[in-house]
């Protein structure tokens, strides 16, 4: 302890402290990071339980009858798919009124999400939760999905689904961790800033192709280190900092005198 105290003013102390703090944050985040939820087929008709959960978790903002308040929109007619998406990705219940509802560890489990979704769906018709077959990536055509994704989605979500920035703190999230059901529901319902891609403009088969393409992107990249697939920013940073740094070190070593 004494040795530690004596060295606390060492010039490398802040660097070491920062490294330790970063490591600690990383470990803690990895431990509590959200795990992907698995969707089952909609079966719940337990509307009473759904209503009870709605009143406990959602009604503060959306109103007791789900008709909306000045803070939050009406949920009548949004459909089960929208409710399920927002709950299983942890976006709802929202924990703060920020530019965008952040994905976080889900507050309700899959069964409860299905119950709330069934309750909201009973208030007015809307898109329903897709079946397992509708979102099965093995039934989709990844090549066709790639063409659709590049035209319809890539400008916000990046060509391989790495995500990207929008305005004023809003952003399009990365899609690497999203389940096929979540991807389908997001296209169908257009959560928050995202526009709606309904079944007429992007058919059910098209949506499954897009899912197949996105799942394909999770395979190992034959090109090696993708550096986040972010394009010139991360690649340029790598070349300037690491590549040129190594070259400078080599030049200094070659020019230095041998001891």
């Amino acid at each position: 302890m004494k040795a530690l105290a004596a060295r606390r003013r060492h010039r490398l102390a802040p660097v070491i402290l920062m490294a330790l703090a970063l490591l600690f944050t990383g470990v803690v985040y990895a431990a509590i990071a959200p795990s992907a939820a698995q969707a089952d087929t909609a079966s719940a008709d337990d509307l009473t339980e759904g209503e009870r959960l709605f009143i406990t978790n959602c009604s503060t903002c959306h109103g007791l009858d789900a008709e909306g308040t000045p803070e939050a929109p009406s949920l009548i007619g949004v459909g089960a798919a929208s409710v399920h998406f927002q709950i299983v990705t942890g976006r709802m219940p929202m924990d703060a009124n920020s530019p965008q509802a952040e994905a976080k560890p889900p507050q309700l489990d899959e069964e409860q999400a299905q119950q709330v979704a069934a309750y909201i769906a009973s208030l007015g018709p809307g898109p329903s939760i897709p079946s397992a077959e509708q979102v099965d990536p093995t039934l989709g055509d990844a090549a066709a999905g790639g063409a659709l994704f590049r035209t319809n989605c890539a400008m916000c979500h990046n060509a391989v689904g790495a995500g990207g920035a929008l305005t004023e703190g809003k952003y399009a999230p990365a899609l690497y961790e999203s389940t096929p059901t979540e991807i389908y529901e997001a296209m169908l319902t257009g959560p928050q800033s995202m526009p709606v891609f309904n079944d007429a403009t992007l058919t059910e088969e098209d949506k499954r192709d897009v899912i197949a393409y996105l799942i394909e992107q999770r395979e190992p990249n034959p090109g090696g280190l993708s550096l986040g697939s972010l394009g010139p920013v991360s690649e340029g940073l790598w070349v300037f900092v690491v590549g040129m740094g190594v070259l400078i070190c080599a030049a200094v070593w070659i020019g230095s005198r041998s001891s």
Partner: peptide
Amino acid sequence: ATDPTDRRIKASDITRGSMVH
């Protein structure tokens, strides 16, 4: 028509909040 699938679009296909390329 939709890009790239080249299907004609009805006005009723485009629901409020949606966007079509």
